[in-house]
Nucleic acid binder design. Structure first.
Lengths: 346, 346
DNA sequence: CTGAAAGCGCTTACAG
DNA sequence: CTGAAAGCGCTTACAG
C-alpha cells in the first residue's frame, strides 16, 4: 500500500513535471536503468521479453525522453538550426522549407532562429542557438566572414548563397537564368541595361552583377550599375529617379522587392512599366505574379538548395546520406508583364 | 614543461571542440568549480578579486558556457519556441517578429519550429521542441485541442488566435475592424454580403463570421456564408463561381489569400473587381497593397500580439514582466481599390 | 566568501 | 543479455 500513491514530487524542469525518467521505468520493470536506455535506443541489444516489459512500463508511465539529458553525454541533439536575417524574405523561407523536409527525413528537427536588425544581433543569435544544435545553416547571412569562420569551428556549418573560407556554399548557378534574361531583353530590342544593385557587401549581389555584366557584354548591350541599394521595396522606390535618369530602357534589379518598389514609384510618377521601360527582378517572391504589372524575374529552386544544405550538414555530422543524382542547382527566367518591347526613342 | 602543450583532447560534442569547461577555468584560476559557476552567474556572491581572476581565465580559455548542461540541473534554457503551421503565412511571421523582439528583451531566445503538412506532423514537431524550451507559443495552430492541453501540461503555453480550455489566448478583437468594414460597404450601397469562409475548424474563422454576421444584421444587410474553404489563393480561385452565382455585390473573404485568389479568378473570367463586385479580406498581408486591384482588408497589430504572448509566457515562467498600459488589442479597416460603389443592378 | 558533494537524466565502456 | 559505475558540464544546498 505504501508505494501506491507516489507523492507529487516537486520538480525543477519547466514549471510542471513529475515527468518519468528511465529510473522510474527501471524500478517498474525491475531492471537496471542502463538496460532501459538500451532497450529504448539500441534495438536488438536487449532480450525481446525484457524489452517488452520495459516498453510497457515506459508507456504506462507516459515516459518522454529528455533530449537535453541525452545530449550531455552524446553531444548530439538531433536538431539543426537555420539562422536567418529575415524570415519574411521569400528566398529564406523557401530555403527553410526545403531544409525542414530534408531534416525530417533524417530524423532531425530544424529550428529557425531569426535576427532581423543588425549583424551584431545575428551574431548573438547564432551563438545562442549553436550549443543546442548539431549543425547550422546560414541562409543569406550578413554575418562578417570572421564570425562565420569562428562559428564553423564550433559546429558543422553550411551556407546558402554566401562564400566564406573553405566552407560549403550551396548556391544556385545564376548564369543560366541571367543569360535567358539578357537574351529575352535583347530580343525585345533593348540596347542598354541598368542594374539596380543590392547591398554592397552581399556575395550574391556581386554574383548577379558579374553574370549580368558578362551576358550583356557578350551580346553587345550597354550595361551599368546603379547602387548599392537596400534589398527592399522602399529602396526601390527611392531609386526610381536615378533609374529613369540613366536612360536605360531595361532595369534589372538585384531582387524582386527592389523591382516592385521601382514599379510602384514609376506608377506614382506617371511612368509606364513596361511602356516606358522594362523591369525584371530576382527570386520570384510571393506577390510577383499578382503585382501590377506582374513581374518578370529569375528564380532558383530554393527548396532544393535547402535540401542540399541539410544533406551536406548530415555528411559533416556523420549521418548516412541517401545519395541522389547530382544535377546542377540552376536558375531560370520567368517572363511576365513587366518586360516588353523597348520604346522607340528615349 | 609537461603541462604546457595540452593535448588536443578528443571530444564528443559536435564534431570539434576541446571547448573549455568551468573545470578548466577552475584549474587556471586556482579555485573550485562551484566558485567559477557563482562568479559567472551570481554577481556579488564572490569576492571582486577572485571574480576578476576567474573572468580573466574564462576569457583566456575562450570559455563558452554550455546551456544544455546548465539546463539539466536548473530546468531552464532561456529559450521559448513558436510552433507554427506555416511560416509563409504573414499573420504568423509578423506575430513571430513581435515575439522575437519581446523575447530578446527578457534575455530569451525565440526559436521557430514549423511543420507545414498535416496536424500530426505539427504535433510531432511540438513534442520534439518542447523539451528544449521553457515555454511555447502556438500561433494559429491546427492542433487538436486535446493535444494542445497535453502539451500545456508539460510546458507553459500560450496561443494566438485560438482558444482551448482555460489556456491564454491572445486574440485581437475582430469586432471594430469588421464594424468598420460593414459600415464602409453599406455606405457604398451594398445590400448583400457573402462571406467566403475559411477552414471549418478554425477558431478565428468562426469569430470573423460571427462578427460579420452580427454587424451586417445590425445594419439590415443580407449576409450568408460560402464555405468552408482552405485559406489559400488556389481555394479563392476555385470559389469564384460560387461567389459570383450568389448574387452578392460584396464578398468578404476569410483572409487575404482567399480574396486575392478570388480576384485573380475574376480577372481571368473577365469579371471586374470592384466594378462587378467588391472584395475585402483580412490580415493585410505582404502584397495586398500592390495587388491589382490593391486589396481592402481588416488588419490587426500582430507585432503587439506576439509581444503579449511572450509577456504572458514570461509571467508563467516566473520572469518579472515590465508592465505596460493594457490597451485592448484591436483591428482596423484598411481601404484600398478592391471595394467600391455597388453596381446598380445584378 | 569558498569548497566539497550530490544531483540533473541520460549513455556507454567495462565486466560478468 | 544485463548490471554497476563513471561521466557529460553545470548548479546549489550545506558547511565552514
Amino acid at each position: 500500500m505504501s508505494d501506491v500513491s507516489e507523492p507529487q514530487r516537486p520538480t525543477r524542469n519547466g514549471r510542471k513535471s513529475g515527468a518519468a525518467t528511465i529510473y522510474d521505468i527501471a524500478r517498474v520493470a525491475g531492471v537496471n536503468p542502463s538496460t532501459v536506455s538500451r532497450a529504448l535506443n539500441k534495438p536488438g541489444r536487449v532480450s525481446a521479453t525484457t524489452e517488452a516489459r520495459i516498453r510497457a512500463a515506459a508507456a504506462e508511465l507516459n515516459f518522454q525522453e529528455n533530449p537535453l539529458a541525452r545530449a550531455l553525454p552524446t553531444g548530439r541533439t538531433n536538431t539543426i538550426a537555420a539562422v536567418v536575417a529575415d524570415m519574411t524574405n521569400p528566398v529564406v523561407f523557401n530555403t527553410v522549407r526545403g531544409a525542414e523536409n530534408a531534416a525530417a527525413r533524417y530524423g532531425f528537427t530544424l529550428i529557425v532562429a531569426e535576427s532581423q536588425e543588425s549583424g551584431s544581433i545575428e551574431a548573438a543569435t547564432a551563438d545562442r542557438v549553436a550549443p543546442f544544435v548539431d549543425g547550422i545553416i546560414l541562409a543569406t547571412t550578413r554575418l562578417p566572414e570572421e564570425h562565420i569562420l569562428r562559428l564553423a569551428e564550433r559546429k558543422p556549418l553550411v551556407m546558402i548563397n554566401r562564400a566564406a573560407g573553405e566552407l560549403v556554399n550551396i548556391a544556385p548557378d545564376v548564369t543560366p537564368g541571367i543569360e535567358e534574361l539578357v537574351e529575352h531583353l535583347a530580343s525585345l530590342g533593348h540596347r542598354s541595361i541598368a542594374y539596380l544593385g543590392g547591398p554592397a557587401r552581399s556575395w550574391i549581389n556581386t554574383r548577379r552583377w558579374q553574370a549580368l555584366f558578362d551576358a550583356a557584354r557578350a551580346r553587345g548591350l550597354a550595361v551599368f550599375e546603379i547602387g548599392p541599394n537596400s534589398p527592399t521595396i522602399a529602396a526601390g522606390t527611392l531609386a526610381f529617379e536615378r533609374a529613369q535618369a540613366s536612360g536605360a530602357s531595361a532595369i534589372v534589379a538585384y531582387n524582386d522587392l527592389l523591382a516592385l518598389g521601382l514599379i510602384r514609384a514609376a506608377r506614382e510618377q506617371g511612368a509606364s512599366v513596361p511602356g516606358d521601360f522594362s523591369v525584371a527582378g530576382f527570386d520570384d517572391i510571393f506577390g510577383a505574379d499578382f503585382a501590377n504589372p506582374s513581374l518578370t524575374t529569375v528564380r532558383a529552386d530554393l527548396l532544393e538548395a535547402g535540401t542540399r544544405a541539410v544533406e551536406s550538414l548530415m555528411r559533416e555530422i556523420g549521418v548516412d546520406v541517401i545519395e541522389r543524382p547530382d544535377a546542377p542547382l540552376s536558375t531560370a527566367l520567368v517572363v511576365r508583364e513587366s518586360t516588353a518591347v523597348a520604346p522607340r526613342a528615349r
